[in-house]
Amino acid sequence: MLREAFPGLNNTVHGKPLVYLDNAATAQRPQTVIDAVNNYYLHCNANIHRGVHSLSEQATELYEQARMSMQKLINANSHREMIFVRGCTEGVNLVAQAFVRNRVGAGDEILISHLEHHSNIVPWQIVCEQTGAELKVIPMLQDGSLDISQLDNLISERTKFVSVVHVSNALGVINPVKEIIAKAHQHDVPVLVDGAQSTPHLQIDVQDLDCDFYTVSGHKMYAPTGSGILYGKEKHLDDMPPWHGGGEMISKVTFEETIYNGLPAKFEAGTPNIAGGIGLGAAAEFLMQAGLENIERRDQELKAYGEAKLSQVEGITIYGNVADKAPVFAFNLEGIHAHDIGTIIDHEGVAIRTGHHCTMPIFQFYGVAGSCRASLSFYNQETEIDQLVDALQKARNLLL
């Protein structure tokens, strides 16, 4: 029934039914999200927070309801801790510039992991260039897991911030973020968790994790592109200066001074992606109605089936062979370039991702330029994994 909620899965590619296995890049949208966006544009298209007319009030209510839905989804303590952003990239950059930059200097260290997406590497390199701080990296092991045994050596009095991905977009590996957060907090070091890939797959409880910041990208969790949330503990957000200046984030402006608005408006300058935010709220409601526990169970069924089937393909190398992972498979076929595989199986209707997946350091570790990546959602089926395997066999027969 849940699969039927996604009309985009009914498309055809090259005359064949679509097999969509690129969910780590962006997921399909359920009809409820599409309807929520359409409803805004059709029936209450107006700017929010600033109008007393009916359309503006209706739009404002829908937008703020979406904030509350996201608060409930990740179990934040207050709606004041929920900042609308365009996605995880903007959320990380906001924290890097408004929270971390003024708290580090020469000799200080920022700690990330080897499994990070470029959007959780480059912002910290920029901060290090600006301040003289140094970037440290939790190393990875051959199976794709992090070498957590190195944490005690890496976290010290010089460590001022930790930023780590919850689920690897390239390998699907689920990192022990709660353990990392606890170790960091023993040294009074705040932690940001990149939740781009975890929110669609796992039950997230930011209070239980005790993370200081958590980022969410809407388009990974069945919401519109350009939507997302930065969660931050209220005490941190209160202490942070605004990152963008403009309308909405002010309470008073004169030519002599500006008094900033309270949370969450302080970080939401300008007219936002209203439709995207409303769609994000609809996606959160969809996930909660579907039940994250059901999604986790389905993910593990697909992961087990995918591992068994893909391992039968001759010449295949699968990266990230750990038990605790999402249904994401990064692989190469011996003697065949990943781009050639992706192009050929596209003609079989199978959509996967090829390249380095914005995680160049991971594939440098494995000594390859990149990989194919099949990333599944709960709406995928075992028969689609079979179709992927059949398409890979055809590619192999054609190219070797």
Rank of each mutant, 00 (worst) to 15 (best):
H219G: 04
F267R: 04
A275L: 07
N47W: 12
V193G: 01
V216Y: 01
V191T: 14
L209D: 05
M249R: 15
S198W: 02
T383L: 13
I174K: 08
Q31H: 04
D324V: 07
H187M: 13
E61S: 13
Q130N: 10
E109M: 02
S311Q: 15
A395T: 04
V350E: 00
E248N: 14
N332H: 06
L18E: 13
E296T: 06
T254R: 02
P327T: 00
A66H: 04
L135R: 04
L2M: 12
K394N: 08
Q289M: 14
C372G: 00
P224Q: 00
L398D: 11
V37N: 04
D152S: 14
G105R: 13
T199Q: 08
D152T: 11
K136W: 05
G87Q: 02
V162E: 02
L280V: 08
K394L: 14
T89I: 14
Y319W: 05
S375M: 03
R373V: 02
E307A: 04
A27I: 02
A36R: 12
V52Q: 11
I229G: 07
N273R: 04
Q71T: 13
F378C: 13
E134A: 11
Q203C: 05
Y319T: 02
Y305E: 09
L21N: 00
T12I: 08
S78L: 11
P7N: 09
A275W: 03
K394T: 09
F84I: 07
A46R: 11
M82N: 05
L146M: 14
K266C: 06
N294W: 00
I180A: 05
Y231E: 06
V177Y: 02
M1Y: 08
S156Q: 06
S156E: 03
K233Q: 11
H219V: 12
T89C: 08
R80W: 03
S227K: 04
N153G: 13
H356P: 01
F286C: 08
Q387N: 11
D22G: 12
L73E: 07
R101I: 00
R297L: 12
G15K: 13
T359N: 15
V13F: 06
N175Q: 14
Q125A: 11
A304C: 09
F6P: 04
L333P: 07
G15A: 12
G8H: 11
I110F: 10
L94H: 10
Q130W: 07
Y379S: 09
V127K: 03
M360A: 15
I385Q: 07
N77M: 03
G218Q: 02
F363P: 06
E293R: 10
G262S: 10
T343R: 13
L237V: 05
F331S: 07
R50F: 13
G144D: 01
E129W: 10
L399P: 02
H114G: 12
K325L: 03
E248A: 05
G228Q: 06
